[in-house]
Design a protein around this nucleic acid. Structure first.
Lengths: 216, 216, 216, 216
DNA sequence: GATGAATGAGTCTTCATTCAT
DNA sequence: CATGAATGAAGACTCATTCAT
């Protein structure tokens, strides 16, 4: 689809379509939500839809792109010029959870995209930048000796594993994904499902991510 | 659907259908996989499907139930009679990740179910028991003073939060879900997507969950 | 289907199948009622059905035949040796309505058969004998001068029609069918639908059939 | 189904679908006639059907409604401002039979609807108005002493019944239904099945309804 | 006689997409 | 830009019937 030059009214229409579709996709699922439902929800004809999007799939992809872009901006804004890498990680985590709290629908869409072969690559592509950014902070923290190298305080079991080289403790990318797992999971379970206070949950997530179960 | 009395041949057929469907659902998605595809994949007539399942949805639910049951059994077996609650948590975590490693399809199905309003409740219901079990171990560990109560080693920010009561550090159920988030996420990203060694990833997950980013 | 020689147990089974099917056909319709529903309602396997009937259609036809035969027997019994043809008509009418009252399901089946091209011929064939019998009584009554020849008491309009030969007043077969129409219709509306007293309705039907709206 | 705003072309399509379907339903039965058959009979795609009707059932119901409405209009037109209630009844009867003669298909549909639990309520609801109208004329005629009160000219049997209060002779609504029974039945048997002259049959029906078998 | 299993054509319905106006 | 109309392949599901055991 050649990029259309849209009037401001056109841009508004497109925004409406994406917002409405995102909600329906999240509530009802991507497949079960029909184009007919989307356009009739906005009280417009089918032609409108295909004026702005070449297909339902493209609509989804565009929602995904926008959401990922928005999340990244939120993280960047939160981190600002903070010099301490650990603090940067913490700020990023909090910013992410705040965004998750506000965009339940989009989080659900991420989850759907991850589960569907057809959309998973796009999701991953979009996350790569964000993950790379976060990984940079983790690496820096490791370099500064702020993050454990897997040596101290380990259980016997873990120590053996490190000794035998079976462990990848300290792998920056893996740590980044662990952060992602904790934050998305806790947001979904506690903020979205149970409606708990986002700040509280964020605090708990930060604490867990920094000190784990055992703390020191 | 009234429970059918199945001959052993019938049970075998049912198993076949569930296994094949699980694979297709995971590879291709639930909605994009048609009943026609499932039966023709097994080389049987369409009626066979509806002899064993009252609907495609019911088939999915049954796969889900079975999978959750199997995972729980694996966890229980791994934990055995271990007296140390922290060790029990670790064993459960490892068992889960091993199961995740072996059942990529089913993990994907869990993810899909979580994203789809229609299946999420069933997924949650099935997880409740497992979560309750794990939470028991966490509680015991807290009682024994093995798990931090959020007091020591916290960043200034976190300490303030605790002081102001804005934080729920130490909430056993939340910690359980954090474990779940880390394990499912790392399994999906590193074991399934990148084909890394499940044991290594499990070790890293354990280390992260016990000590967090900062270790001590 | 070659006539099977049935054991007494077999005859009982067949009766059960026919009775159950008749009820379901009447309540739910012929097409919407499946063979599976019939056999499972009796707690038997599908083989049983096809042991006694070569097809669902044949089952329906057999129910129809039996019902018509039973109705005719009831009429014959009621009329007995009564010499007065008008009285015979009246007795037949009452007997029919009593039977209708008792066999709501079968009346409904007659109605369905009449509406369905596929079964209408069988229905008509079965009714022919009964209609012929009734018509005989009507003819006799006309011959005896007991039934009007369309001359007297007619409205001006009707008189003209008779004069111009446009009217078939006194056509015995038509009169018979008029009786049928009144009795089946009143039974359905008042006895079955509204649960009114069959005797009362029968009396009213007789009165209407003998004297019409205007009486004398 | 939300009411669609139809263009004149759309209205024409809908009319076509209803007319064609009515014919096939009548000839072949409601259940045996598939949506596929209907649309292919008009040479259009399957989607067209569901653009105009939300289901096959709704199509049937709409045909039914239209037919009942048309019949009622015909009756009303025929009766006009006629002051004599008996004459009004006669005119209504004739109008009905003329309509029946012209709309064999729709009469068959009425019959089918009456036999099928699923459609019977809709049929009844539609008939209520017509029956109420006719009943009004009958009541008026009784009030004017034009219709017998069940006293005179009865057989001994009937007289006893009246005396004992077992009879409802003169019940206006019952009489109305008797008229309906006669007219629909004679139309189906003589006009549709045997192709006889509608006027002749109507005359006979009128004669029977006014004077019954015995005349005066 | 009877059962569970299987068949597969056929049913109603949906839906992404296209197009004339 | 926008609409109502149309397409037709595809989907979930049904069901009369058959058959091996």
């Amino acid at each position: 689809m050649e990029k259309r030059r849209l009037t401001s009214r056109g841009q508004e229409r497109k925004r409406q379509l994406m917002a409405f579709a995102a909600r329906r996709f999240a509530e009802n699922g991507y497949h079960p939500t029909s184009v007919a439902e989307i356009v009739s929800g906005l009280g417009v004809g089918k032609g409108v839809f295909y004026w702005y999007f070449s297909s339902k799939e493209e609509l989804f992809l565009e929602i995904l792109r926008d959401a990922q872009h928005d999340l990244r901006r939120r993280q960047d804004d939160a981190i600002g010029e903070e010099p301490d890498p650990v603090r940067r990680i913490e700020l990023g985590l909090r910013a992410s959870m705040a965004w998750f709290a506000e965009h339940r629908d989009l989080v659900n869409l991420f989850q759907f995209a991850a589960a569907e072969e057809r959309f998973a690559p796009a999701l991953r592509r979009g996350q790569e930048v964000a993950v790379a950014d976060a990984t940079r902070h983790v690496k820096e923290a490791i370099a500064e000796g702020r993050i454990r190298d897997g040596d101290a305080d380990a259980t016997r079991h873990v120590k053996e594993a490190i000794a035998e080289g079976r462990i990848r403790d300290g792998d920056p990318e893996l740590l980044t994904h662990a952060l992602l797992g904790v934050s998305t999971y806790l947001a979904a379970r506690f903020i979205h499902e149970r409606g708990e206070n986002p700040d509280e949950v964020a605090e708990a997530a930060v604490a867990f991510c920094l000190h784990g179960l055992l703390g020191r």
